[in-house]
Design a protein around this nucleic acid. Sequence first.
DNA 1: CATGAATGAGAATTCATTCAT
DNA 2: GATGAATGAATTCTCATTCAT
Lengths: 219, 219, 219, 219
Amino acid sequence: MTGAMASQETTDREWGKTRSDKRARILDAAITVFARSGYHGARVSDIAREAGIAYGLVYHYFRNKEEILASAFEERWGDFLAVVDAIAQGGQPARQKLVSVAALILNADRVRPDWVKVLVLEIQRSSRFAAPEQIRAVGRLFEQVARIVREGQEAGDLRPDVDPNVACFVFVGALDLVITSLVLGLTVIEGGDAQQRAYHDRAAAAVVDVFLRGMEPRA
Amino acid sequence: MTGAMASQETTDREWGKTRSDKRARILDAAITVFARSGYHGARVSDIAREAGIAYGLVYHYFRNKEEILASAFEERWGDFLAVVDAIAQGGQPARQKLVSVAALILNADRVRPDWVKVLVLEIQRSSRFAAPEQIRAVGRLFEQVARIVREGQEAGDLRPDVDPNVACFVFVGALDLVITSLVLGLTVIEGGDAQQRAYHDRAAAAVVDVFLRGMEPRA
Amino acid sequence: MTGAMASQETTDREWGKTRSDKRARILDAAITVFARSGYHGARVSDIAREAGIAYGLVYHYFRNKEEILASAFEERWGDFLAVVDAIAQGGQPARQKLVSVAALILNADRVRPDWVKVLVLEIQRSSRFAAPEQIRAVGRLFEQVARIVREGQEAGDLRPDVDPNVACFVFVGALDLVITSLVLGLTVIEGGDAQQRAYHDRAAAAVVDVFLRGMEPRA
Amino acid sequence: MTGAMASQETTDREWGKTRSDKRARILDAAITVFARSGYHGARVSDIAREAGIAYGLVYHYFRNKEEILASAFEERWGDFLAVVDAIAQGGQPARQKLVSVAALILNADRVRPDWVKVLVLEIQRSSRFAAPEQIRAVGRLFEQVARIVREGQEAGDLRPDVDPNVACFVFVGALDLVITSLVLGLTVIEGGDAQQRAYHDRAAAAVVDVFLRGMEPRA
DNA sequence: CATGAATGAGAATTCATTCAT
DNA sequence: GATGAATGAATTCTCATTCAT
């Protein structure tokens, strides 16, 4: 989600637009349009217009509409996963890692709501027909979180009697639904960016807190 | 999800098909087809063929394709919500209510995976364009769960320092992702029905347990 | 080319248009348009307009454009072959059979130039990509003519020292080129229908004559 | 078909590719691709790739796709016609000339099946829309053959009572169909090059023989 | 000359919805 | 109620041709 978006074959001449530049513009435009209209509601012509390029050029860079979504997913999700990987491999205690992941996910929604919308809502749609790679890519997120859990269990920071995968689903599912409720407008945050940030931070903290300490009062 | 499927105007004459019978067949067929191909991928003709009726007859019972999905959602989801309502209004302690809700959701997936698939995956899709009633309907589930949480807090069974809505998102989100991982095939359960039931029961128990007692080891 | 065009599933109700009626109209329109513009130059919308029906109805009866051509070929060519079969199986001497075949082919061009144009010019086009059935269908014409030759040889009416297949190619090829030269406008016949008919008859007679007696003067 | 391929403005500098060299490569590539995919099925990019040159360069040498076909036709057909001209103007008897023409045509198919395929099948296609020059060019072949016939008639070698044009159609049509049956795979010759050559030679001889002496047994 | 990115008109095909029987 | 033929707007994808570098 952060991280340099690796440009595939940029020659990076100083005078201007390169191959991958247009490609990236198409991808950005596509995410915007997908987020606005949904995958099936998005017309290729919309994407072209949003990108400010000619219609047919889209097909110069992508075989078809499906490949646009797949590429967008692959690259953005790749960036996102890289950050999760970095967090998972860090030396911090499990609790801190989980806070970081939660903050990453929830903040991503604040900074790039389009991307999150598409990653969260649109991918499932196509993935059931198409690429199992995409499903596997989603699976990689779970693996990283499950790994954080497992290492936390081994370090004695987390209960060892819960399947790491189930724990992972609880954690990610909780975050996912918090986001979805925001995306779908079930939760409405009034106020400006500051208020939104505050809500996200509080939500992240609360999710981690419930996940770690549970809802039952401690003696 | 359980409960009688409310037939609107069944006359139940002994000699054969009645209005609501055909209507129900269309709805069942639609869910099957939506689950198989997704809402946009499903053709009205597919639904008609699956229901074993003539093409145009669908339009006697439903104004359009969207209404088919809406009706399927409304009726099936209504059945489901009725059960959740009953659980929420019962006199049991919060923990027991949550176990019941978790078991209800996870078992629904085992008994009627098609329905769950559609409810979980397809509704989000169309809901952003179409009926806000559907969103509100989903919201009613959250309300019930939040109510269970709130009453648990008032009864001293649950920590009072967590927003019931956030707690609700954590709980439902966790269940949702467990289901989704099953639906998407991220989690594969080998063995027969008994094994599946066992997995679901364990998962339900684990989700509730993590939700209530947290992942941090207690002293 | 003559003969009743077998209507596939006509129910023949007295009040009007039946399924196969529309189908036949599309086929007729297609042949007209193909003859005018060529297969690739013909738009499906042209065919629909020529047939006086809605655009999409074409796709009710035919899977795609290619299938229209294939069907047109199959049915018209089938009619044509039936007549050739009848000639070949008749009890006349080979010479008479060949005159009949030549007259059939050349007259077909006079009566239904569109059909001949399409059969002669357009089929080769697609046949190289698509249906080997079409190639085999053309082959059946050759088989019938070769059979006439073979039986003529066995009856002592024709020289036995020439491969019947080669003889068949000479005969059909000769007729084909006469037609093609008419279709392409290399040969222009002035005057009305009577003149055209006269030319065709003379050409048919001449082709058979050359085929049978050769160009070398007889002692 | 044999003969030097007339290069328009060859400079033949020793250091490498010249204008006409690239041009010729495009033409060769085009024929290969036309033969493989048909005129309409051939993309300009296919031709460029086959020729091993850049996409847009094709448009330096040819105004458009049609002109590529026209040029290929013109130049290759021109070479072919030159040979036919030479044969027609020779001092041999008609029979010998016809044998030469038949051998020329059939052997061309053996040596350069691509060229023949395109000349035979593709030209008709475009000729009805495009250049009447091409039709006239095809007409020139007929003229030469008709001339051979006419001079044979005048010399007393051939029957005078047959229209030279009809005789010409019989002869060329026969050859054309022998070729077409080879091109379409209706006639399959097993064995290697030697067998093919033998078949062609026999076929050429047989066609001429039938054309000259007819199929009826002589007393 | 050479390159290949950019353009956009054009065509096939799909499919929800209507309607005559 | 039941049927499925008929409609046509909407959209994706193709590909010849142009043009900036």
